[in-house]
């Protein structure tokens, strides 16, 4: 099975490079047909408002949601997390399958974007936070898997992981090892 990267807009090329580094087969998801041979999913960074608009055209998110609910490993970074979380954007619903609340652009605008040290599982690396969202509350059954000082910056609920930062811009070996495990095994990967 391939790892499908949502490729409507955003950092899908960077996620694709990460998958090349761990030698995983991938497919870019633009239409419902692209979901057929997908065994794990990555939702990239970008503009969530645009992605929601672009997929309306072929009702992609409804099919994507059904696919994710079958329990396949799913990773969302930044805008990808916003799409997974309980949310609505310009009156339109997101995928709504990760039980946490999100504040979009939680740190401010681009001038407040930064690099920060993150504890992700049991390793520490610097990552980019770009007009990043904040996770303001997490539901029961949702584990915290990444923190920046005391702030929650990554969560996992079974097969679904959401991160507020962009590991795809760095490709740290620690992250690649985690990703390799995650797309293979999904929920069996350890948390904090």
């Amino acid at each position: 099975m391939k790892t499908g990267i949502l490729a409507l807009q955003g950092s899908f090329q960077e996620h694709l490079e990460s998958l090349k580094l761990i030698e995983r087969d991938f497919i870019l998801i633009r239409t419902v047909d692209d979901l057929e041979e997908v065994g794990s999913i990555i939702l990239p960074g970008g503009e969530s408002t645009s992605m929601i608009k672009i997929q309306e055209n072929n009702d992609l998110f409804n099919h994507l949601k059904i696919k994710i609910l079958t329990g396949i490993p799913t990773l969302g970074t930044c805008a990808g997390l916003i799409l997974l979380a309980k949310n609505s954007i310009l009156g339109k619903s997101t995928l709504n399958i990760l039980d946490c609340d999100i504040e979009r652009n939680g740190y401010g605008r681009q001038n407040q974007s930064f690099e920060g040290k993150v504890q992700f599982n049991n390793f520490n690396d610097n990552y980019c936070f770009i007009r990043a969202p904040k996770i303001t509350s997490v539901g029961s059954g949702v584990k915290v898997i990444a923190k920046m000082e005391d702030e929650i910056v990554g969560v996992q609920s079974n097969n679904i992981v959401g991160l507020t930062f962009h590991p795809e811009l760095n490709n740290e070996q620690n992250y690649l090892n985690w990703l390799d495990n995650f797309v293979m095994k999904g929920s069996n990967v350890g948390a904090l």
């Binding site: 955003g10 970008g46 503009e47 805008a79 930064f114 980019c128 770009i130 811009l169």
Partner: peptide, 17 residues
């Protein structure tokens, strides 16, 4: 804040748009 990596990274997020 505002390292070149963050500036360039922001542009990456606009790709395909």
């Amino acid at each position: 804040e505002s390292t070149f990596k963050v500036k360039k990274g922001f542009a990456e997020m606009l790709k395909g748009g």
